[in-house]
Design a protein around this nucleic acid. Structure first.
Lengths: 125, 125
DNA sequence: GACGTTGGATTACATGTGTAATATTTTATG
DNA sequence: CATAAAATATTACACATGTAATCCAACGTC
């Protein structure tokens, strides 16, 4: 289990686009972020560079352009963030916290069914 | 709805002890944190000062000592963190994210029943 | 009342983050 | 080939954060 680096709020936006589709050139990343954030291209470039330095993103040279792609898994990063969040705020996963999440969520009927399924499984343990 | 300030990871530890019991003197906070973190007293004092500056903590003078207490609610702060986390990581609350939480959780039968209750309520909407 | 002790106030300093601008290198074009 | 265009690399700079140390003021003690 390799350790995932710490990824800042802004960097997460970059990671999200790369996880969605990659490899991408810097400009493509800028393009895909333009709807989500109003950063100057240079700012996005800085974020990409920092992610490369942290080992979260790698690239291959294709001609003079670099094609960037994630070097770490989305699920791993999410798990790390989730745990950090829970430790910080609740000191662990708690029922009130889950209740709050569920209340806030927008869920389809299928989603609800699936989550109930999980709960039923747990009830049997 | 007043806006809660941003609270850093270390600051959260301080807030947690103050939410648990307050008011406390700086030294009492240091004392209560000593099992959780190995910070020098001055470090804890700095964290408290920053929280005061942010408006997250207030104090009253009792003789020459200050008695500190939270100025913002735990639940509000948690809600803010939760939303920040979700926006960052998932771009909002999603079913897969909820599923991951539920899978990880340690829940009693009552907890499970209550959560199912919430889901059923949502199914009716 | 001088003095040490004990808290609070001020200052420190490296690293991270948000947000870019400038400089340099590579490439396409005339 | 010279030069403009484009991409990458380097530099910038203020504020946040982790982690304290030092300075100063009030209080109790002799």
């Amino acid at each position: 289990m390799k350790k995932v680096p710490r990824i800042s709020e802004s960097e997460w936006m970059v990671m999200r686009v790369l996880w969605e589709r990659s490899p991408l050139t810097a400009n493509e990343v800028v393009e895909r972020l333009s709807s989500k954030a109003r950063w100057k291209p240079k700012t996005v470039k800085t974020l990409i560079d920092r992610l490369v330095k942290k080992g979260a993103v790698k690239f291959e040279k294709e001609g003079r352009r670099h094609k960037y792609y994630p070097a770490i898994g989305r699920d791993e990063c999410i798990a790390t963030e989730r745990q950090s969040f829970l430790r910080r705020v609740y000191g662990g996963i708690t029922k009130p916290m889950l209740a709050a999440f569920l209340e806030d969520a927008e869920l389809s009927a299928d989603d609800i069914a699936e989550l109930k399924e999980i709960l039923e499984q747990k009830a049997e343990e």
